[in-house]
Each structure stands twice: as C-alpha cells, then as structure tokens.
Amino acid sequence: MPIIKINNRDVHIQELNKEATETVLLIHGMFSNLSVYYFNIAPILAEHFHVVMYDLKSHGMSERTLHGYDLNSMTDDLYALMETLDLNTVHLAGYSFGGLIALKMALRFPEKLKKLAIIEAPDPSDEKARGIIDDYSREFLEHYVENFTDTTKVKMGKRQMERNHRMYEFLFYQTSIKNDMVAEKDFFSDSEITTINKETLLLYGSDSNCMETGKQLSKMIKSSELMPVPGDHNIPIQEPVLVGNMINTFFMN
C-alpha cells in the first residue's frame, strides 16, 4: 500500500500510468476515500494521463489527525503532496468537498494547475449541507448511509456500520472539522472566486440539490462550462464511465 509522508503525516496514495507526460490529480469528498475514483474513473483517465489519487487526512487509509480541515490547510497538504511527488503542474479534479479544495487550489496556487474539473462542489453556506454535521447521531448515520453514500445499493452489515460509526464519531466529536467547515461558509460569496481564470468543467447531477450551486459557479468563473449528468449528488458512483469520459475529453482537448 503506497504511503508517503506529507507534512509529517502518512498519506495513502495510488498512481496509475506513471510514464505519461501529463498528470491528473483527483480529490475525493468528505467521509469518502480515493476508491470513488479507483475502479472506473481513474482507469479511463490513465489511458492518456498519469493519474494520482490520495486519501484526505483521517479518510480512507491516511493517518488520522485532529486539526486542519479548513480549505487553507487542505490545499497546503495538496501543495506539499505535489512537491513530494515532483509534480510541476497538473489537471485537477475534485468531487464534492474535494471540489471546494480544487477551487481553493486554483485561487492560491494557479501556477500549479492546468485545467480544473469540479464535480458537485456544494455551497459551503448551505445550512443543509453543514447541518449534517450538527445532527449527527447513530440514526443519522443509518439514514445518511441509506440515502447519500456510495453504498446505497448495499445494506451495510454490522462490521461496516461500526467502522463508519467510528469514523464519523471521530471526525465529528474529536476533530475540528465542524468549526473548520462553518468558517468556510463565505467561500462563494467572497468575490475572489470570480478571479479564477482556469478553464473549468462543472459537472453536476441533473437531479442534484447542488445543481443551483453549479449554475452559480458557472456565472462566477469566466471560462467555465456547466454540464449536467443524469443523477443526483452521487454521479461519480451512478455514472462513473460517463463522468470519467467527460473529464478525460475535457483534459485532452
């Protein structure tokens, strides 16, 4: 299992097609991990690109940590990861919370990026999105798992439920993730977003609660294109091949 040290912490990464000249870097969402890309989307991109996936802190198989879930810290981590892997510039794609990290990256380190693909990034001022964090409970988890995660089609067994329960308990009650997220609520209203000048693909589920955010971003980012994908917030799970192909075409042209 490839583990590298980033800012003194263990980070789990996966790479495909290291020989390719251009690199695509993929960021997963909150409470998820790199497997959201590993099985379908990454192999499609790896036909032409060097693909790098990594698990965010306390997610997947990366080391747990108590602090630093704000977008500055998350992009510091990503910058350090690029330095460690000797990646000069990359095409960057991020899903959900990972989409917010990608947008922040474009603002802070534009020189490190080529094109940008944002999949279902939510508006951080949306109370409902943040409400998840306030209302956490075991019942909430069961409901959340049934409705919103990539395991919708599989009833979670006891071991998985315990495993997920432990992860949520850790993230919600022991780390700074709650406060760090609340502190980001003005990220979109901050006019800074309008200064992003990267060619940007916005992929949003046609039935997603986040579609309005996609429209909002397409107005704010000059050289962006919003493309609807059949499905809801879970489009990388619902339409992995379509999403993979759309990102691939966008990065290739």
Binding site: Q14, N33, S35, V36, Y38, F39, N40, P43, R159
Partner: peptide
C-alpha cells in the same frame, strides 16, 4: 465479507503486488 470499497482497493493492491502484470484485477473489476 462486508468489504467496503477502500478495503477492496487494498485487496486489489495485494493481488497486484503478488501477481504483477500477469493479472489486471482492477481492469477486470472496472
């Protein structure tokens, strides 16, 4: 076995490490 996707990633990596290019396990899964 109640394996979730990140555990199947670990499992795939072990197959890759053991069999090398002989078996494209991830390709087969995808």
């Amino acid at each position: 076995l109640e394996m979730d996707s990140i555990e199947i990633v670990s499992f795939s990596e072990k197959i890759k490490a053991h069999f090398g290019d002989q078996i494209d396990f991830t390709g087969w899964l995808s």
